[in-house]
Nucleic acid binder design. Structure first.
Length: 804
DNA sequence: TGTGGCTGCCC
DNA sequence: ATTCTGC
DNA sequence: GCAGAATGGGCAGCCACA
């Protein structure tokens, strides 16, 4: 049974479900004044669960919305809090919709009818309905792994929505959720906030759900559709400057101070408010605006984009501008990304199941969602089991069909439990490729794979190529990030028929495309591969030949092999395809368990111009695990090993102001080697990884007294990407790199290996500070050149030179 | 028409 | 790509 | 150990502008 008590709130409340902002619409004005801290941007949150709003409060829903901005300005006072308490033998009421008399208050409006029509239109063929949501199907096995969630689940998505059922979802609501999520680092809390928001969309305006998901994952479409905003920091700053009548310089300096353009946009705006409130933004409007921006091309497209952004900015209230700008900048950085979104979706659809169309809507029921569990009481462990089950289904499905466009309509059709069948793996939809965990040595590999059979493969230095053959026989090639690279590789498309065996029809293979010198029959460096054209390539124009190294088979003749162990997948790969020398080869591999043997194989891989080894189990934990979810593969590279690989001692000559979580400290530095010949410092690379937070704080303090007003004449500095602040040469840091490269930008060793170009580092990272070294003791330009030559010798001097 | 800056995407 | 950090 | 967010070099492609 449930009891409701009135309590005084004395600080932060944990564990209750809430939408703080929603409360404004439902609490008497006197109490609303207490909720300032939420909107004032402070960390502290005040939460509340309010169960039985008075009819008067309910009716005033729309009117009270307008009061929010005034509330922001008031002081925080004591709050009277209504919370829900449950007894020891706790049961959790999972209510997809209101169960009491308020139920009938759900407007059966024209808007909702439209939602239903939308659903009919957008829902593919319908399977498994009636019993689909019967919870008793679940096993009652308990999980001990994760903490219980949704403890006092008395969340009513109909009540909590700040907009009416069937109305467009306001972008304001989305931005408020983003802000709430932004203000916590707790993942469970993030997931809960987002899943509850999804629930409100499911019961009100499900036709907006896909767009909500896209906005919150910062996508416009699946990446293989190649729809890009073409907006970056520069254009954003221009738009912010113009819309706030601030100089570009002013915006830049604010950006340095705040570390976030979104914040800059919001603060500039509030400084000069317009008299008239433009029409509020909706999810639909914002999404459409983003989409239009992405489609703008050709002459004056940039200024049209700027205008569009300005148009959005004038309509913004509260935190909307922050998240619009962050979205356009490509990084939401609120702590919610792919994995958490999937979990939130799963929980939302488990707790608020849409009513399948085949299930008639009975009198007094909500037209969009099932009332199935209205009377049903679940114990917390039961609830937990259901949530985990949903989580596992949604994740599994997204791994085999990573498309919200296809998954969301099925979920809205009430197909959560049959999702795996209605969303099968489909050639033509790229999977997130399986990734590998870096290991620091053979001993770590052996330790991780103790008592398991494993195989070692060459790790090729090229570009991931996931090649699909669709039902219609066409071939598609996708990149590591699911971009469509088909038109980049007409040569590979042409090659395919030669290597596909007769019995092989549809498939998905995992390969590395590597630049290849057909004369010497040797692998070429990544830098050569990257010079290939990307768009509308004609076979005759190809200058860099490519060899495919295939290493996995994920789908064959209509069947997913995701769950098959690697031993089987590889066997199937070998029989489904035929090698073609210099064009299509299976990745070199060997099975061994002995440390010395592995070391020898690692060395051999380097001699054969590879990056190192991939180590994969053959039987146990040997399924194909897409995405970053599980790094069951291991990678072993020479530069991971201590005391192996190129390590340099370099001088810090400049700093870059940090952004995001590095606001207020330097986020990166410009490094130089010392050139004794000319007694000057030559830029070699920037560095921004390898620092702990403590390191960065110490660096910021250290360089406070070493800032220079101008660039010293004895600095040879890069063409682009100049530091925000110059430093006197003083601190020497130890840096590790995977490779050295001829640089179009940096100046180290200029004239020593290339007349006009310097040398830079590939994958530089900070190892530590060399307190013992003076800047003149840093790695010398000639040493850098020597290191480059040593590496180039191994590659038999392959890099192209300018014809000068 | 050539060049440089910006963006997205490879690693 | 590499790396660090809160959970 | 996961998930997310900091940050690297360097290429093609596109657009603004001289």
């Amino acid at each position: 049974g449930m009891t409701v008590k009135r309590k005084k709130l004395a600080g932060k409340l944990h564990g209750s479900d809430f939408f703080p902002f929603v409360l404004f619409t439902r609490m008497p004005a006197k109490q609303q004044t207490s909720l300032t801290s939420f909107f004032s941007g402070g960390k502290r949150k005040v939460s509340s669960v309010s169960r039985s709003p008075s009819p008067a409060a309910k009716r005033s829903k729309v009117e009270t919305k307008t009061e929010i901005t005034t509330i922001m300005a008031t002081e925080e006072v004591e709050i009277v809090e209504t919370i829900t308490e449950t007894k020891m033998e706790e049961t959790v009421e999972v209510t997809p919709v209101s169960t009491d008399s308020e139920q009938s208050s759900v407007p059966q409006s024209k808007c909702l009818v439209k939602e239903l029509e939308w659903r009919t239109k957008n829902l593919p063929e319908f399977q498994k309905t009636e019993a689909a949501m019967e919870l008793s199907e679940f096993s009652q096995q308990q999980s001990t792994q994760q903490a219980l969630r949704y403890k006092n689940t008395k969340f009513d998505p109909v009540e909590e929505a700040t907009w009416q059922p069937g109305e467009p979802v306001p972008y304001l609501a989305v931005s408020r959720v983003m802000n709430a999520i932004d203000n916590t680092t707790k993942r469970l809390e993030i997931i809960e906030l987002f899943s509850q928001f999804i629930r409100t969309v499911i019961v009100t305006t499900p036709s907006d759900l896909l767009k909500v998901i896209y906005l919150c994952t910062n996508q416009l479409a699946p990446s293989y559709k190649g729809i890009e905003l073409g907006i970056g920091e520069s254009i954003l700053m221009k738009a912010i400057a113009e819309s706030t009548q601030t100089s570009l310089k002013g915006i830049k300096s604010l950006y340095h101070k705040k570390g976030d353009l979104g914040t800059v946009a919001r603060e500039c705006r509030s400084a000069q408010r317009t008299m008239f409130k433009p029409k509020a933004l909706s999810v639909q409007k914002v999404f459409d605006a983003f989409y239009e921006i992405a489609l703008m091309k050709g002459h004056s497209s940039t200024s049209r984009k700027v205008d569009k952004i300005k148009g959005l900015l004038v309509c913004c209230q509260e935190y909307e501008s922050t998240y619009i700008i962050r979205s356009l900048g490509g990084k939401l950085r609120i702590g919610l990304a792919g994995q958490s979104v999937l979990i939130a979706i799963a929980h939302a659809f488990m707790l608020t199941p849409p009513r399948p169309l085949s299930v008639p809507c009975e009198e007094g029921q909500h037209p969009l969602v099932l009332k199935l569990r209205a009377e049903r009481k679940l114990s917390e462990s039961e609830l937990q089991t259901h949530l985990l089950r949903a989580e596992s289904i949604v994740k599994q499905v997204f791994y085999q069909l990573p498309s919200f466009e296809l998954m969301i309509p099925q979920l809205l059709a009430g197909n959560l439990l049959s999702l795996e069948e209605v969303c099968p793996m489909t050639p033509g939809i790229p999977l997130k490729p399986m990734l590998a965990h870096p290991t620091k040595g053979i001993s770590e590999v052996l330790q991780r794979f103790e008592n398991m059979t494993f195989t070692c493969e060459y790790k090729y230095d090229g570009e991931r190529a996931q090649i699909h053959r669709l039902e219609d026989g066409s071939i598609k090639i996708y990149s590591r990030n699911a971009e469509d690279n088909t038109e980049k590789y007409p040569d590979l498309i042409e090659l395919m028929p030669q290597i596909i065996q007769d019995a092989t029809k549809t498939f998905v293979i995992d390969c590395e495309a590597v630049a290849f010198d057909t004369e010497t029959k040797k692998i070429l460096p990544f830098q050569v591969l990257s010079t290939r054209s990307k768009k509308a390539v004609q076979k005759e124009d190809i200058k860099v030949q490519v060899c495919l190294y295939a290493f996995d088979l994920i789908y064959l003749n209509g069947e997913s092999l995701l769950k098959a162990p690697f031993s089987e997948r590889r066997k199937a790969l070998y029989s489904a395809f035929a090698e073609e020398e210099g064009k299509f080869t299976f990745a070199t591999h060997a099975e061994m368990t002995d440390t010395e043997e592995i070391e020898a194989f690692l060395n051999k891989s380097i001699e054969d111009l590879c990056e190192g080894l991939m180590v994969k189990t053959l039987e146990v934990d040997a399924s194909y695990e897409p995405s970053k979810r599980s790094h069951n593969w291991l990678k072993l590279k020479k530069d991971y090993l201590d005391d192996v690989g190129d390590s340099l001692d370099l001088v810090i000559i400049g700093g870059y102001k940090g952004r995001g979580k590095r606001t207020g400290v330097y986020g990166g530095f410009l490094l130089a080697c010392y050139d004794a010949e000319n007694d000057e410092y030559q830029s070699i690379c920037k560095i921004g990884t390898g620092f702990s937070d403590a390191n960065l704080a110490e660096f910021a303090e250290y360089f406070k007294s070493r800032e220079l007003l101008e660039v010293p004449t004895y600095y040879r500095i890069p063409e682009t990407g100049l530091p925000d602040v110059w430093f006197s040469p003083d601190r020497v840091v130890e840096v590790k790199a995977a490779d050295l490269s001829i640089s179009p930008n940096h100046k180290a060793g200029m004239g020593l290996v290339d007349p006009n170009k310097g040398i830079s580092l590939r994958f530089p990272r900070y190892l530590g500070t060399r307190e013992d070294k003076k800047p003149e003791d840093a790695t010398d330009a000639s040493q850098v050149a020597t290191m480059y030559r040593a590496q180039a010798n191994k590659q038999s001097d392959i890099l192209p030179h300018d014809d000068l």
